[in-house]
Write a protein that binds this DNA or RNA. Sequence first.
DNA 1: GCACTTCCGCACCGATCAGTACGGAAATAA
DNA 2: TTATTTCCGTACTGATCGGTGCGGAAGTGC
Lengths: 218, 218
Amino acid sequence: MIPDLHRSVREGYHPPVRDQQKAPIGRPRGFDADKALEQAMRVFWGQGYEGASLTDLTDAMGISRTSMYAAFGNKEDLFQQALQRYTDGPAAYVPRALAEPTARQVATAFLRGSVQATTRPDSPAGCLGVQGSLAAGEPGRSARDTLAAWRNSGIALLEERFQRAVDEGDLPAGTDPGLLARYLMTVANGIAVQAAGGAARADLHMVADMALRQWPPS
Amino acid sequence: MIPDLHRSVREGYHPPVRDQQKAPIGRPRGFDADKALEQAMRVFWGQGYEGASLTDLTDAMGISRTSMYAAFGNKEDLFQQALQRYTDGPAAYVPRALAEPTARQVATAFLRGSVQATTRPDSPAGCLGVQGSLAAGEPGRSARDTLAAWRNSGIALLEERFQRAVDEGDLPAGTDPGLLARYLMTVANGIAVQAAGGAARADLHMVADMALRQWPPS
DNA sequence: GCACTTCCGCACCGATCAGTACGGAAATAA
DNA sequence: TTATTTCCGTACTGATCGGTGCGGAAGTGC
């Protein structure tokens, strides 16, 4: 099954409840799992699921293979957790955009956020949700399907938001919220591909502005 | 060096000159290199450069590893040739779109063509030029860079075409042909991502129409 | 027929893949 | 201290990676 990675967007973020006693038993973990996961996320982001070897990952995480398996499961589990971290971190512009007051502002914040997130000079270019695994051989199918579901989940969030805008009269009656949502996600995905190819942030901002120019009137 | 894969678009297509004598010397090749390359292209298209193993490729091509190396060089060379075939085949809608009489028709044909090409039921979903290699580990860097250059070359072709449209008065003076070109390629790339994730052809056509709705007036 | 050239299936190469067995070290609770 | 529990570095597994050496078979021009 594919976990619901955008759950936190709908229900609010609740960090996992730690055990009451600070030291459970035995030797405590010798590394910061959060920092390690952050590094793993960046490797998957820059090299994709299939292009990231366990050696690449554990080297970046600063831990041994054994520690990685003990802490995160296996490569596939690690990828899922890295994607969750990506959702709550670099992709947090999505829930922020959804919280904007009008549909037009939602769309603008969504596309501007996607340009910013895919062209940060201190992070890999592009979007983990796109380039993490778009086409893959047999061993990468699961990651590919997870990302497709992740993108569809983003479309669903946008659609719900635009449906609300229609209901509130913020968007003209008869507007198709699903089409608006898919349109925005398509442009954002294209921006991610362009960013992965090295397109400049300023150029992509102009593209995003152009994509918003025909937004339905408020 | 990255070969100029869109050369044939500018100079017209000239098939390579075969030797005059039909049978050069020795035993002739026992398979159809064109058919084999077609199959290799489809494997790269569906699984990406890194996701396509030599075994996957040669199985689909119906030849042995040795024959593949003798006929095409190595995996990287095979990928380049597969991309060239993709350019001349499934991506031939690009030069066809460029030949349309007006800029608006060029844009329409380009996006419609990209939807058709990425959602053909008898071919892998998506675009080889996008999902062939977006993010990759060290061994796939060359393929990734080749595809980025391929996409940029497409943008350049569109830009030249729109510059001509501006010069001819088909587009308003002051229009930025580079921005129009990058905008269209961005939308097409997004369509490719959506198609790779299983989006329906009809939905993507609506997205393409929406992206064209704010095209500058003729 | 001959001599020659090329094709291509089989078996193999070292390197790397994801994943694991093991055991000493370290930190806890008693 | 002692017993217990967990951590994690080393070394290894079988499988697969891209790429090759070899040699018999098959087709060519003469």
